[in-house]
Design a protein around this nucleic acid. Structure first.
Length: 499
RNA sequence: GGCCCUGUAGCGCAGAGGCAGGCGCGCCACCCUCUCAAGGUGGAAACGCCGGUUCGAAUCCGGCCGGGGCCCCCA
C-alpha cells in the first residue's frame, strides 16, 4: 500500500480451450490483485493461436467467467486499448513480420528436421543421459544442404537461436535462478505451415504491450530463459520498448494424489463450482490462499482487503493442494456474510434451475423466499442446497413427496400416533405461528405421549418437509400454512404401517 | 535420463538464528439444541533425512531422499 507502482502493467492471457479451470482463475486473481493494488494496468489478452484447440465457445465462456468472478480489465476484449487487437488470432501479420525480422537479423533460422527425426534424436540423447532438447542440427546449414532438403519437399519451421551464455533472472517468487545454455536449446517459433507458436507470440505481445510483470504458473518457469533471450533479440530489432519484464512464477494448484490439477479433473472446472452455488467471493477468497495469506490469523476476507494487502513478494513458492473442504467452509462464511436481500437475490437462479420457481417469480413467491431464506442462510455451504432445504415450500403440493429413505427410517408404526396427535393439536390452534405451534406440539407429544423432543419432532419434520434435515420445524410449518401442513401430516399417517 | 522448482500436523498458511513451534480447515470429545448447521469449550496431530557453521538452527551451508514441472511444429 505504502509502496505502490502505478506504472505496473500485468496481463492475463489464457488460451480459450475448454472450460475455465480453477488454476487459471487463481492466476487471473493474482494478476488482477497485483494490478489493482499498485493502481496499475491489467491487460486481458486471448492467446488463440492454435486453431485446432481454440474455439469461439470457449472464448465466450472465458469472458463470461471473468465477469462472473468480478474481474475487470483495463485493456482487452470489449474494452479495447492502445495495443488492440487483443486476440492473437487477429494479430497474425504482426507475428509474421517479427519472425521475418528475427530471421533477417540471424536470431532465428530455418530448421528442416522432421518430427520423426527430432523424436529419434531426442530419444538417443535421453538414453545417453544428455539434455534432450533440440540439438542444433540445422543451426548452420550450407546452401547446398538447404537445396537438398527443399528438393526433398521439406518445409522448414522457424527456430530461435539461443545465445551460448548462462541466463539468469530474479524470480519475484523464488529469487535468482540461473540456467546453463546447454539446458536451454533452440526452440521453434513458427510452424512449417507459417502459423506462429506460443513461444513467439507470447513474448512478442508482452513486449509490444509493454508488460512489466509476468505472473504465471510455475509450468512456464523453465521456458523463461528462452523468453529473456527472445526479449533481447526483440530489443535489438526494435520490437517493443526494449525492456524485459520481471517474472514471478506462482505455485501449482495440485489435485488429488499430488498431481497438478488437470483441466479434465472435475474438481478443476469453474463451471462446476458455479453450478453447485459457490459465490465468487468465496471461491476467490479460497483461491487467494493458495500461495498467499492476508494475515497469520485471518482466512476470511473480501477482494477489497486482498487488493489492499496483496503483493507478489509475499507469495509462497510451494505447490498448493486444492482442499475442497476448506473451499466450502470459506464459501459458507461468505454466504453468511451476504445481506439478506442479496442472499435472496442470488438464491433465485438455483430454484429456477429445477423448476421450483418460474423464470419470472411472482411477488408472493419472492416473499415466501425472503421469509425462508434467513432460516437457511447459516445452514448452507453452497447456494444449490436451497433446493433440498426449502424446496418443500415451492413444490406443487400435488408433486410433493417424502424422501424414501427418510420415510423408511422415521415413518414407522411408532410414528403413527405421534402424527395423529399432532394433527389434533394443530387443528384447533388459534394462532398458527411458531411459538404456539411449538407449545401445542410439546404439550401433545412430549408431555402427552411422553416422547423425547428429538424423537417426537423428527416424524413431523419428514412429513412436512420431506426430509430429516430441514430448516427449523415450527417456522417451516408456519410458512407452509396450516392447511398444507395438516394435509401432509395426514398423508404421512397413510405412509406409516398400521400397527 | 538432464535441468529447474519445492519439502513446517491429514490439508492450506505463519514463523527467517534465541523458550521445539502460531492460525485456519479437517478430525475427536463435550456444551447448546426440534433435525442439520452455526456458536462455545477442550483435545490429538508437524519442522523429510544426514552432516556442517554457531554458545544456540525449522530458520544459514552441503549432501541425500521425497514430491512436482519442463525438455513439443501445445499453451
Amino acid at each position: 500500500m505504502a509502496d505502490t507502482h502505478p506504472n505496473v502493467r500485468v496481463r492475463f492471457c489464457p488460451s480459450p480451450t475448454g472450460n475455465p479451470h480453477v488454476g487459471l482463475v487463481r492466476t487471473a486473481l493474482f494478476n488482477w490483485a497485483y494490478a489493482r493494488h499498485h493502481g496499475g494496468t491489467l491487460v486481458f489478452r486471448i492467446e488463440d493461436t492454435d486453431a485446432a484447440r481454440d474455439s469461439e465457445d470457449s472464448y465466450n465462456q472465458l469472458l463470461e467467467a471473468m465477469r462472473w468472478l468480478g474481474f475487470d480489465w483495463d485493456e482487452g476484449p470489449e474494452v479495447g486499448g492502445p495495443h488492440a487487437p487483443y486476440r492473437q488470432s487477429q494479430r497474425m501479420d504482426i507475428y509474421a513480420d517479427v519472425a521475418q525480422k528475427l530471421l533477417a537479423a540471424g536470431h532465428a533460422y530455418h530448421c528442416y528436421c522432421t518430427t520423426e527425426e527430432l523424436d529419434a534424436r531426442r530419444e538417443a540423447a535421453r538414453a545417453a543421459g544428455k539434455p534432450s532438447g533440440y540439438d542444433g542440427h540445422c543451426r548452420a546449414l550450407t546452401e547446398d544442404q538447404v537445396a537438398v532438403y527443399r528438393q526433398e519437399g521439406r518445409t522448414p519451421i522457424v527456430r530461435f537461436r539461443m545465445p551460448d551464455t548462462p541466463l539468469t533472472f530474479d524470480d519475484l517468487v523464488r529469487g535468482p535462478i540461473t540456467f546453463d545454455p546447454k539446458d536451454v536449446p533452440d526452440y521453434g517459433i513458427v510452424r512449417a505451415n507459417g502459423a506462429p507458436l506460443y513461444t513467439l507470440v507470447n513474448p512478442v505481445d508482452d513486449a509490444l504491450m509493454e508488460i512489466t510483470h509476468v505472473l504465471r504458473g510455475e509450468d512456464l518457469l523453465s521456458s523463461t530463459p528462452r523468453q529473456i533471450a527472445l526479449y533481447a533479440a526483440l530489443a535489438e530489432i526494435g520490437v517493443g520498448n526494449g525492456s524485459t519484464p520481471r517474472f514471478g512464477h506462482l505455485p501449482y494448484v495440485m489435485g488429488e494424489g499430488n498431481k497438478k490439477l488437470s483441466k479434465r479433473d472435475p474438481q478443476a472446472s469453474l463451471n462446476l463450482y458455479r453450478e453447485r452455488g459457490f459465490l465468487p467471493e468465496g471461491l476467490l477468497n479460497y483461491l487467494a490462499l493458495l500461495g498467499w495469506s492476508l494475515a497469520e490469523d485471518r482466512d476470511v476476507f473480501d477482494m477489497a482487503e486482498m487488493v489492499a494487502a496483496f503483493d507478489i513478494d509475499d507469495v509462497n513458492g510451494n505447490p498448493a493442494r486444492f482442499d475442497l473442504k476448506k473451499c466450502e467452509h470459506l464459501n459458507a462464511e461468505h454466504v453468511r456474510r451476504l445481506a439478506p436481500e442479496e442472499f435472496v437475490r442470488r438464491l433465485v437462479p438455483y430454484l429456477q434451475a429445477p423448476g421450483l420457481l418460474p423464470a419470472e417469480p411472482g411477488a408472493e413467491q419472492l416473499d415466501l423466499l425472503a421469509k425462508v431464506a434467513p432460516l437457511t442462510q447459516e445452514r448452507m455451504v453452497v447456494l444449490g442446497e436451497i433446493v433440498n432445504m426449502a424446496g418443500f415450500l415451492f413444490v406443487d403440493p400435488a408433486a410433493f413427496t417424502v424422501d424414501e429413505e427418510d420415510a423408511a427410517k422415521v415413518l414407522t408404526a411408532d410414528a403413527r400416533p405421534v402424527l395423529e396427535a399432532s394433527i389434533k393439536a394443530l387443528e384447533g390452534l388459534a394462532d398458527f405461528t411458531p411459538e404456539p405451534i411449538q407449545a401445542a406440539l410439546r404439550e401433545a407429544l412430549v408431555d402427552g405421549l411422553g416422547i423425547k423432543p428429538k424423537f417426537a419432532f423428527t416424524p413431523l419434520r419428514v412429513a412436512v418437509t420431506g426430509r430429516r434435515v430441514s430448516p427449523p420445524l415450527f417456522e417451516s410449518m408456519e410458512l407452509l400454512g396450516r392447511a398444507e401442513t395438516l394435509r401432509r401430516l395426514a398423508a404421512a399417517v397413510e405412509l406409516t404401517p398400521a400397527s
